[in-house]
Amino acid sequence: MVKFLISIAGRFIVLSLALMGIWLLLSGYFDKTTLLVFGIFSALFCAWLTLHMGILDDDSVPLSVMPGIFFYWLWLFIEIGKSNFTVAMKVWSPKMSLSPQMIRVKARQVSDSGKATFANSITLTPGTVSVDLLGEDILIHALTEDLADVGAIEDMGRKVCRVEGTRHEKAQGKAEQGGGT
């Protein structure tokens, strides 16, 4: 089942169904036959276009990370809440004791989408913004010294690796190697 889902045909079917679902949600018409036919047609057409353009890979339909990524997002929401408070306090404090830092963190994710997830997670947590990605290095601008916590950020990176690890086993090993830094 899983094997089928991450094959091309499986991705095609899942993508078509997802597009159709979004079409239904956004239009809200379930009983107009003409509209439904058009909707099915456009969903299938878009899925075919994806196939035709050769971008129907695991990056565009990331089924292999599916269960894990939701738990990661849940964790990320909590992190976002926490760091938002820190930044909000800085905004309202009259003296605004900022000490911006530029730091480098290793992105040990294997796939591009993994790296993008990691970099976006860094940006989503206020107080840190990923500025540049050079090879495996992510350059981060942090608002204060406390927020420029390399350990915490690398911890986040390891979590991304773990989510990604279901399909890239070696990411695990790589992440543990560099865990101490």
């Binding site: 930044v87 900022l98 206020p126 913004v129």
Partner: peptide
């Protein structure tokens, strides 16, 4: 929004704008 106005340079303002966008 206040952070966008108060913070001293572009890079720090970016963080403030993130507060609005996320939470």
């Amino acid at each position: 929004a206040l952070g966008l106005l108060r913070f001293p340079d572009f890079y720090t303002r970016m963080h403030a704008s993130g507060v609005t966008d996320t939470l």
